[in-house]
């Protein structure tokens, strides 16, 4: 009997109400994260990666409507409508970092003060303690000369340094789960590696769980323990990293892997996936949202809802014709 996962998202469905009708942003999305594990969610823009993260954080816009499913975190039901408890949990038990760290920090507040704001919010600390802890948090993410950096404004720091500050802020209260939404987009490759190494290290060190949202399958392959592939609001495949990279069962995953540049590849050999995401406002969305881009399409794909098949113990795929 294994322990229940740290985070379990189960059959989550979510619509956005817009003037042009309902956008079926998520349907039957399921994944889970254990302690000390990084789960990567991979997919192209608009596939519902960030929306899933915001749903977990309870930070959805007011136009979002959860149609069904559940989100359980450390035994608590996160979808139960309890604003105050959710706010107290954000930043303390679940933290989130974003892309473009420069704009994600308050431009006119010292970075140390911003970390302090989080510390003060989540625990009774004196001013002196808060400052000490904020500097410690900066030290933990290997910011050199952290006592001096405490007084820096975001515009005085490089993008990579800002992202480390963001991580320091997210980890200041030692959360159990870190959600990183495209944390390295906009950073150069070297900085990207530094930031990802740091996240990996923090996960190994503190046994927290992490959710890495990225469109870069290469990055996810390098740093994640498991990968869930999302397409148009569906989780189409969920497997341990090595399994997914070697034996991708879903046609979309297979094509994503073929489209990921490796060092030896010629540009001409790089695969691309034809077509785009279906219009999620359509009333008559097909059972398989990958149907129009798929080369394995058969009659049953149009006729019946997709089955979720368990290929091995922890390899799930949502397709009629997995390989």
């Amino acid at each position: 009997m294994t322990a229940p996962p740290l985070l379990k998202v189960d059959k989550l469905s979510l619509d956005f109400r817009t003037r042009e009708g309902r956008v079926k942003a998520l349907q039957d999305v399921s994944f889970h994260i254990d302690r000390g594990e990084i789960l990567g969610i991979v997919g192209e823009s608009g596939s519902g990666k960030s929306v899933s993260a915001f749903a977990i954080m309870g930070l959805l816009e007011s136009t979002a409507e959860i149609g069904g499913g559940s989100v359980h975190f450390a035994g608590a039901d996160l979808l139960a409508d309890n604003g105050a408890a959710m706010r107290a949990m954000r930043g303390r038990e679940i933290s989130m970092i974003f892309q473009s760290p420069r704009t994600a920090l308050n431009p006119i507040r010292k970075v140390g003060r911003q970390i302090e704001d989080v510390l003060r919010r989540h625990g009774p600390v004196t001013g002196h303690e808060a400052k000490k802890k904020a500097i410690e948090a900066l030290e933990r993410v290997r910011i050199p000369d952290s006592a001096r950096r405490y007084d820096a404004y975001p515009f005085e720091l490089s993008g990579g340094m800002c992202q480390r500050v963001m991580i320091a802020m997210a980890l200041a209260c030692r959360p159990m789960l870190l959600i990183a939404d495209e944390p390295t987009t906009g950073l150069d490759v070297t900085t990207q590696a530094v930031v990802m190494d740091l996240i990996r290290e923090m996960v190994d060190e503190t046994r927290m769980g992490a959710l890495l949202i990225t469109h870069d399958l290469g990055l996810a392959g390098e740093y994640c323990d498991r990968i869930a592939v999302m397409h148009a609001g569906h989780t189409v495949e969920d497997a341990p990293t090595e399994v997914l990279l070697e034996k991708a069962a879903h046609p979309y995953s297979a094509r994503l892997i073929a489209a990921t540049p490796a060092a030896a590849d010629e540009i001409a050999d790089l695969g691309s996936i034809p077509g785009g995401l279906p219009d999620l406002r359509r009333q008559d969305l097909p059972y398989c949202r990958f149907r129009d881009r798929c080369d394995r399409r058969v009659e049953v794909c149009d006729a019946q809802p997709l089955p979720v098949t368990e290929l091995t113990g922890s390899h799930l795929v949502r397709c009629w014709r997995p390989t």
């Binding site: 930070l59 974003f98 994600a104 920090l105 963001m166």
Partner: peptide
């Protein structure tokens, strides 16, 4: 803005 989203994600109170 992004930094207000960060502040919310960190659970800061409405007034802050």
């Amino acid at each position: 803005s992004d930094f207000v989203r960060t502040a919310r994600a960190n659970g800061l109170s409405g007034a802050t």
